[in-house]
Amino acid sequence: MAKRIEVKGLDIYYDKFLAVQGVSMTIEPRSVTALIGPSGCGKSTFLRTLNRMHELVPNARVEGKVLMDNEDLYGANVDPVNVRRHIGMVFQRPNPFPTMSIYDNVVAGVRLNSKRMKRADLDALVERSLRSANLWEEVKDRLNRPGSGLSGGQQQRLCIARAIAVQPDVLLMDEPCSALDPISTQAIEDLMLELKEQYTIVIVTHNMQQAARVSDVTGFFNLRAVGEPGGLVEIDETTKIFSTPSNQATEDYISGRFG
């Protein structure tokens, strides 16, 4: 559980377009790493390279290294499907499977991978995952109702429950709260603080207060100039980034002077 991720000199391409250039960082286990930066600078793109979702885009490719506990995720014999077994993901827009009940959504990762499990074990897994996602109390009486009938915030927590039900080592979250109201956001932030006891969490957020509240380390992404690829400007302890960043661009961004 909870693995360290090291990124070394990562260049990310969409076909011939270099979207992100030269990212190197270390993501510590049992911590929350926040990625901030203006729109279009490649935060989502970078996040999706960490669990090899990036290559689902036709002709998209990556140069450089991503190591998970010293194993290269882009090594020659690495199966991307297996990478995603270790690294789960929560998306910006809640996307529960519309054909499935709440229960089936939570166990989707297990069922769709055709792992056989006893009913009692599945029940326990559902309860454990939903409890971890702070959703159990709200849905325990209607587990067989469709997941898409929940509110947006509940759906997002259902998606988190679904992601942690397969017990990944790392959890990636791409703006998980940007479609949610403040109360649901609060619930998910609390959840992140609980989850970091067990998981390595990387979250992209546009909300600087959120980064300051939940993260231990913050990385600032930026475009060097219009038309240039995006890149990591600096990464440091969250308290340091938000008080005395070492880069002028970072300071401008967090003080709201640009971006």
Binding site: N51, R84, N95, P98, A108, N113, S114
Partner: peptide
């Protein structure tokens, strides 16, 4: 079928053909 559902399935480490059949 929204692409997001396919991605949600891939992110759960479901292979492509199973994603097509089951999702």
């Amino acid at each position: 079928v929204p692409n997001e559902l396919r991605e949600a399935s891939y992110a759960l480490a479901v292979p492509k053909w199973r994603t097509i059949v089951k999702v």
